[in-house]
Simulated assay, not measured.
Amino acid sequence: MMKKMLLITASLLSAFGFSAQANDRYRERPPVIVSPDLTAPWIMQLGGQVNPAPAVRGQPRQGQVYYRQQAPRAVYRQAPTSGRQPIFAPRTQSTQIRPPQIRHQPPRMQVQAAAVRPNPVIRQGLEPQFLPQMVDYRTDKAPGTIVIDTNNRFLYLVMENGQAKRYGVGVGKPGFEWAGTHTVTRKAEWPSWHPPKEMIQREAAKGHYLPVSMEGGPENPLGARAMYLGSTLYRIHGTNAPWTIGSAVSSGCIRMRNEDVTDLYQRVDVGTKVFVM
């Protein structure tokens, strides 16, 4: 009898304890958690099956909604390595949340070194003051005399009545200036060029190699005409670089445009006085 009462008492105590625990656990109702799938009522109207996206490492699943409306296709979240399987993600037409897109690194471009070309020569037009023109010129020199003003880059052919025909010229560069009085001792059309040895050596030291001689022609530095001065190496001649007229660029010669030196050539004779200032 005593043993039966002890069993009844133990049963009552166990039931009371379980009831107390149950009351403690469900004393307050747990909060109602609404799935994010139900926050869009139109989803239910479509009658489509809502499938949560598979877990992707580094990306939380909360708030992501995917709709299986088309056949799935394999999309690599990262470049597969040996032993790693591709992660499948269903294609979606939803604009709510989209899986991250794969960014492919563009291939490296092979840059080939471009051929280095020398800078082109900038050819500017002749300034107006260096074009041939008639000017007033008061001098005691006789008509037919040539006067060369190297400072201002002008050649004057003295004429009567205080007039002169003025041409623009190129003169000797620094270190090659000179002045003096000479006469025209020889005239030549399309003259050949024979650079002096001093000029050949001087230019070779700069890396410019001149020919021993060069026949007359459009590429010849002496141009279309030449008038030789006395027994010197200096000449009044044309040029294959007319854009240098008005500059100090020569080795002492007086250079003119081909059309200008041709005009002057027709106006002067051997024996003409030339004054270089």
Score class of each variant (00 low, 15 high):
A188G: 09
A188K: 14
A188L: 14
A188T: 15
E189Q: 15
E189P: 14
E189W: 11
E189T: 15
W190S: 13
W190R: 13
W190G: 09
S192T: 12
H194C: 06
H194E: 07
P195Y: 05
P196F: 07
P196I: 00
E198D: 13
M199A: 14
M199S: 09
M199P: 00
I200P: 01
I200K: 09
I200C: 05
Q201S: 14
R202V: 01
R202L: 14
R202F: 01
E203L: 09
E203Y: 08
A204I: 09
A205G: 10
K206G: 03
K206C: 04
G207K: 09
G207M: 03
H208M: 02
H208P: 00
H208S: 11
H208C: 04
H208T: 03
Y209H: 15
Y209W: 06
Y209T: 03
L210E: 08
L210A: 04
S213K: 12
S213P: 03
S213W: 03
S213F: 10
M214N: 02
M214L: 06
G216E: 04
G216L: 06
G217V: 02
G217H: 11
P218D: 14
P218N: 13
E219N: 15
N220E: 00
P221F: 12
L222H: 02
L222G: 06
G223A: 02
A224M: 02
M227P: 08
M227A: 08
Y228W: 14
L229Q: 01
G230S: 07
G230D: 04
